[in-house]
Nucleic acid binder design. Sequence first.
DNA 1: CGTTTCAATATGTATATACATAATTTCAAC
DNA 2: GTTGAAATTATGTATATACATATTGAAACG
Lengths: 241, 241
Amino acid sequence: MSTTAEPASLHQRILSDISEKILSGVWAPGHRIPFEHELTAQYNCSRMTVNKALSQLAKAGLIERRRRSGSFVRQPHSQAAILEIHDIRTEVEATGLPYHFERISRLKRRSSTEDRQLLGLDAAGPVLAVECRHFAGKRPFCQERRLINLTAVPEAEEEEFLKISPNPWLVGHVPWNAAEHRIRAMAADEDVASALDIAAGSPCLVVERRTWNAERPVTQVRFVYAAESHELVARFAPSQG
Amino acid sequence: MSTTAEPASLHQRILSDISEKILSGVWAPGHRIPFEHELTAQYNCSRMTVNKALSQLAKAGLIERRRRSGSFVRQPHSQAAILEIHDIRTEVEATGLPYHFERISRLKRRSSTEDRQLLGLDAAGPVLAVECRHFAGKRPFCQERRLINLTAVPEAEEEEFLKISPNPWLVGHVPWNAAEHRIRAMAADEDVASALDIAAGSPCLVVERRTWNAERPVTQVRFVYAAESHELVARFAPSQG
DNA sequence: CGTTTCAATATGTATATACATAATTTCAAC
DNA sequence: GTTGAAATTATGTATATACATATTGAAACG
């Protein structure tokens, strides 16, 4: 997996240009983004192409379109994430921004008491601790801290997690049959604040997940998102198209 | 008035026709759905219109498109986020503390624009706005703000919600077949801070839920918990095919 | 026999165009 | 000055068309 998505097509480029401006704050909520005909001129393309990009942005909830008035940056509603095996790459790319991640550290160790508690292990054994940051464009989107039970997944020892992040690697290598999510809010501590480039104390959403394979703990992971950047959405039935 | 599936637009109709067939199981995973040019003939429209619908389906993950081969129904990406309708009384009592609640206000009014947006209503009509606090022991545990669509649930007008809180009352009186949860973190504003007896700005967990009955919005509710007091837990096994 | 080449095919993206629809503004009529 | 009809404007949807691209299958070739 390459980490950066090239601007595949023109309307994708327009889309990511604009969402970058919005998410970076260059265009604040309420700001009127250029009219379709202006963007048409700016990108030297047809109105249909611009329209496609703007329609997607509207559908994604980043902008609001009003006939006769123009298109406006919406209040930071932000993007949806399905609850379960939420794939961060997909979440990020849904916003139109290029995704990449950074592996910060990777350490094999004998499991500490805390590790065992987090993983739900009852016996000692080697674990792999991995820390990553996921980015949307140039901005940090999510901090990930993970423990992998090497007894259940010995192959993980050979993987550096530099080109592929732990989640897709695990999905491709290990089956699981049970999972547990814990979701809560917390104030950013120093560590989180610097990882996400936000102020210490500001609210964050924390998603912790443990997965098992045949009763055996596989991995435990904690994702932390800045509150403004993220919202989890879970639906029980398709509401409408 | 209820939200009867309106004709909307042609590509929307194509999209919902197809997703209906997929979700109902008429077209199983792996099934090749008709080629664009076949759908073009079937709906008597241009390929662009069909293409728009199929592209959206692909983006939504329901189908997979392969050049030269066609479009295929994908394996179900487990949409079933198991977040049961969480019952606050049960949550509180699980901690061993006595539960009680307090109805703060109850107001019938014509739906404002904001009400309609929150509920997902497209037409005006009466709503009931109810605000409550739930306690664990003597400490406030959760603030609840709710809108009830009186068009869908006229009986609610007779209920004062002094002895029974809105959630158990609704569960006993109105069936629902779709729900949506939104979960996020936020900083407590003045209102929340005083309701929960915490400092303004401290992190909170917000759970918003909307439920529908036969396409008709029933109720919208926002629960706010102080971060330290609460954690959501969701367990599930992968549904897979 | 295996490999290369080429044509056929379905999707992917972009174009120009047309008309519909909703929200403002203008401006004349009352 | 208020009302209301018409013009204006930006978006919404659909059309026909064109060419690009990936993949497949079959024909041509050494």
